[in-house]
Design a protein around this nucleic acid. Structure first.
Length: 425
RNA sequence: GGAGGGGUGGCAGAGCGGUUUAAUGCACUGGUCUUGAAAACCAGCGAGGGUGAAAGUCCUCCGUCGGUUCGAAUCCGACCUCCUCCGCCA
């Protein structure tokens, strides 16, 4: 959420900045609500003041053994007026809050202009796509042709579309990828490894800004109060600092976890229906950093490089793209996507997305640190990214490491997790 | 599942209907003293919001939501959560 005060004071310039993100700020609505709020709040607070003063007077009078009926006269009228104003004020504040929770974060100045993904800018690339002396197959075909591989029809029987069963060696490689990534981030990149709940409450999803706007993307459980399956480990990892005031020397916090992620994929009908590119359930290694505001830009660069190192160690060609304003996620101020080469599609596909949320999530979570220069609690900045998506990494390995026979060569860095295996057959 | 006890500022911890503008301690900040440091002493120090040019001033907040009352951290109800004991269990 944006700072309500600065929206109020810089309404026009905020609206202009948000236009870069294809968002039209309803200035009239804000001005109107704000005007009413101001008068109502003044009236309400002065009534509260009056009530407080009278109540204190009653206390004093009673202590002195005096009659209090004079003070109490007119109290009923005051109370009912106060009740009414209070209710109106609450209604207004709820409306304002409800609207502000649906206003996206302001993009950074260095984010390129653009309407949609076609305006994203490639800023770096690594590796060279392999030349095949035969026609490269896609991962779904490769997986289904393995003796022990991907079973989409079994998963459809068990659940429905957009799920997969992995059997034998491929399940093992999936697990090896998880081990490899967690080991790299925790042992080499300085992240603390976590194991977290896969079910979270509403407050957590509000904190990282999946709610209230994107409820239809989530799987909601039958439970009172509401529980949801996590769409990403960003939610539990980031919300660990919700409501906290952190000591300056404890920052930056660097957290990582492997979790399944559950997404309803509402609105993606017809997209990537084949294979395991877009599933209702997939696994991901998540990287989260909680940093001082002054460090957030370099933290995003660092975190992105940590995801890149995974792809480099796996020897998968990729490119790094900066998202344009129109393609940026709701809470993100700046996002780098890492896109891995998929030979069957002849193109680069997203495998990691690394974003800086500046203070957008921190304000919703009230996650703060004590700034020694001011002595005051101030909002932290939050950064997160995938390091990287496991299912898509598996897809990329299958396609990039395939042999003419349909066997999949095992990448060197995974061998210690898959001893005595050279190929998936 | 049963019984009991808790949730108060960064932390610890008092308060249990009206000088609470939440005691006190620790931590923190500034000062005195000291060659320097420690100790001691003095002073300051919760969060959010409104209003104001500022000084200031007002409102809200004691797990959450609701209720009683002129007045609630304090009383009542529900819920969340933590701890202890018993039972059950991977």
């Amino acid at each position: 959420m944006l700072d309500p005060k600065s929206i109020r004071l810089e309404l026009d310039s905020t609206a202009i900045k948000l236009r870069k993100k294809n968002f039209d700020l309803d200035k009239d609505k804000i001005t109107g609500l704000e005007h009413h709020r101001k008068t109502l709040q003044l009236e309400t607070e002065s009534l509260q003041n009056e009530r407080n003063l009278k109540s204190k007077a009653v206390g004093k009078a009673k202590a002195a053994g005096e009659d209090v009926s004079d003070i109490l006269s007119g109290m009923d009228a005051l109370k009912s007026e106060l009740d009414q104003k209070k209710q109106q004020l609450e209604g207004l504040q709820d409306q304002m809050q409800g609207y502000l929770l649906r206003v996206p974060n302001i993009p950074s100045d260095d984010v390129p202009e653009g309407k949609d993904e076609s305006n994203n800018k490639m800023i770096d690339s690594w590796g060279t796509p392999r030349k095949f002396e035969f026609e490269a197959k896609d991962h779904a075909e490769l997986g289904e042709n393995l003796k022990e591989g991907l079973e989409f029809s079994t998963a459809t029987k068990l659940t429905g579309s957009r799920f997969v069963v992995m059997r034998g060696g491929i399940a093992r490689m999936h697990r090896a990828l998880i081990q490899f990534m967690l080991d790299t981030h925790s042992l080499e990149h300085g992240y603390t490894e976590f194991n977290v709940p896969y079910i979270v409450n509403e407050a957590s999803l509000k904190g990282t800004s999946q709610l209230p706007k994107f409820e239809e993307d989530l799987f909601k459980l039958h439970h009172d109060p509401s529980y949801y399956l996590i769409p990403t480990a960003e939610v539990p990892l980031t919300n660990m600092v919700r409501g906290k005031i952190l000591q300056p020397d404890s920052l930056p916090l660097k957290y990582t976890a492997h979790t399944p992620c559950f997404r309803s994929e509402a609105g993606s009908y017809g997209k990537d229906t084949k294979g395991m590119i877009r599933q209702h359930q997939f696994e991901k290694i998540e990287l989260v950093q909680i940093v001082k505001p002054e460090n957030s830009e370099e933290a995003l660069e660092e975190l992105t490089s940590h995801a890149e190192i995974i792809l480099q160690k796996l020897e998968l060609p990729y490119q790094k793209v900066i998202l344009c304003g129109g393609d940026l996620g709701f809470g993100s101020a700046k996002t780098y996507d890492l896109e891995v080469w998929l030979p069957s599609q002849g193109m680069y596909r997203e495998i990691s997305s690394c974003s800086s949320f500046t203070d957008f999530q921190a304000r919703r979570m009230q996650a703060r640190w004590r700034n020694p220069n001011t002595g005051k609690p101030e909002l932290v900045h939050t950064i997160n990214g995938s390091g990287v998506a496991v299912g898509r990494a598996l897809v990329a390995i299958m396609e990039n490491y395939q042999e003419k026979s349909g066997h999949i060569r095992i990448p060197a860095v995974l061998k210690k997790y898959m001893p005595s295996m050279d190929y998936l057959e």
